[in-house]
Design a protein around this nucleic acid. Sequence first.
DNA 1: ATCGTTTGTTACAATCTATCACACATCATC
DNA 2: GATGATGTGTGATAGATTGTAACAAACGAT
Lengths: 244, 244
Amino acid sequence: MSNTLSVERSPALDRQHRQSLAVTAMSSDRRGKTDRLERASVRRFQSKEHIFCEGDARTHVFQIEDGVVTIYQMLNDGRRQIVDFAYPGDFIGLGTAGEHLFSAEATSSTRVRCFSASALEETARNDPSLALQLYKAVSLELSAARALLVAIGQRSAIERVSTFLLMLHGRTAAAKDCDSVTNVVPLPMRRADIGDFLGLTIETVSRTITKLRLMRVIEVSHGTGIRIMDVDRLADLSERQACH
Amino acid sequence: MSNTLSVERSPALDRQHRQSLAVTAMSSDRRGKTDRLERASVRRFQSKEHIFCEGDARTHVFQIEDGVVTIYQMLNDGRRQIVDFAYPGDFIGLGTAGEHLFSAEATSSTRVRCFSASALEETARNDPSLALQLYKAVSLELSAARALLVAIGQRSAIERVSTFLLMLHGRTAAAKDCDSVTNVVPLPMRRADIGDFLGLTIETVSRTITKLRLMRVIEVSHGTGIRIMDVDRLADLSERQACH
DNA sequence: ATCGTTTGTTACAATCTATCACACATCATC
DNA sequence: GATGATGTGTGATAGATTGTAACAAACGAT
């Protein structure tokens, strides 16, 4: 499948990138099996650039090294649902379908490590630990997707936003320990992204954040992020699931 | 529990799912550690019985042989989100967490095949094909969860119900060929289940189904199921994602 | 057959969110 | 500095879904 010859599906994904990816795959194919994965190339994307688009041949799998990537799908009329924010360490493009089922767009300057999907799968065929690693990675994605499902399907606007902030808090707290003291959660995505992630409009997101600010639960630090003043109160507002 | 050793296959067990995990694992290797998987017991559950609950130790993985199982999570105040309907052939309880993150409840009389989770994982540690099958099974679950995410997050009530009916249609069409002629889709779950699956109330579900019936798009056959009169119109109403 | 429970349907008022509109701030460009 | 593009915040209104009923139908148990 020559994706370099295919007509561009998204104006945001220029042909240069597609060619580069193909070349990367070709050059790595000449090497040994383990070597292929070790010599995975690194690519950089600017804000709003696409790593891949829905419908593209799933030739590569990527691991985020730096930046945040939105995984989304669009409807005919322009409505967009973001199903995941991929953070450093996360893999994107995993799965068994021949084509990508979702699009991936960088929210900011992003660095990703590229793996040939076919090489990855072939290596996994002889390496149970790698195969199990893939299994675990997708299982985590599934858990995240279903947690979001519960939030969007059952929770109100303020509960969704609270849940979202706590999700980001837990995610960044695991990565950096600096925010465990100040509870500062960076918000690298725009309000529109949060809205399309939570199934809300940007107005509702904005109003809800304002409401949380007036309730002294959070502080908004000039667009770059928020600071959680009262984690317990935010957890109550999020109406997290019953504990067993 | 009396384990009937009858090897009868459910007619609803479609080709796609026959290829899955345990069937292949059991038919492939009859010696060694996979032997443990072969002696998996079969259990039966009545309607509304739980196969497992959220928070339970994840000791077993199950494959549905007959019946339909709801995978759900509940909030403190009783709100419930169904994240999946497991049909014959599907696996439930997969994942890497030590505890079940969701509950599983039989909607009707159900027969499941039980596998020891630890045995499954240990076998997968030495059997790449099994590990890859786990990977594929979870990948399919992820795709379904994200598709539902798009539906709930962006679609209106009538679009969600239309999407849901088409989902079931595709699922049952793969299993039985009898409905490819009449387009009859059985609805083994209650309205409340459909509502909790689509993030709607039962009243909205009922109203929407009535609306589709008045539009001559579907026919409701006495509670047991629906008959899709106009698949194309239903697809238009579902506002499925942009085609590529 | 009768009762009671469960499930499904419909009507109307209430509520939450979306839509529309505009102000404001920031940033890059001219 | 002026200009336009982009992102954000806020208010008023409209609209869709929900909540609360009441009711009908199906089912099981006595």
